[in-house]
């Protein structure tokens, strides 16, 4: 399980970092730095809360590995 960010939506409001400081920090501009390493089912309730709280709807839960982006 990991938290995926749609960077085109994220405005750096920071609610995610406030709700889950043990996993989410903010960079110098306020955008989230998410540590998804070892994120497991025990944290799934907290993760769902974070995803639901995002005012920009920029977060979602992904269960796969990051999708490679193929350029032409």
């Amino acid at each position: 399980m990991r938290i995926e960010i749609d960077w085109t939506r994220c405005d750096g409001h920071g609610l995610c970092a406030a709700l889950m400081p043990q996993r989410i920090r903010r960079d110098e501009w306020g955008f989230p730095l998410i540590d998804s390493v070892g994120l497991d089912q025990r944290e799934s309730a907290a993760v769902r809360r974070v995803v639901a709280a995002c005012p920009a709807l920029a977060l979602r839960i992904a269960h796969d590995q990051p999708q490679p982006v193929a350029r032409a």
């Binding site: 749609d6 960077w7 085109t8 939506r9 990051p66 999708q67 982006v69 193929a70 350029r71 032409a72």
Partner: peptide
Amino acid sequence: GGEEHALLRGLAGDTSIPAGRRRPV
């Protein structure tokens, strides 16, 4: 604009910018 999602958007008449979701075309 040459990124594949951006290109498809450009072809559809939209602004040629990449999409937020990384979904293979």
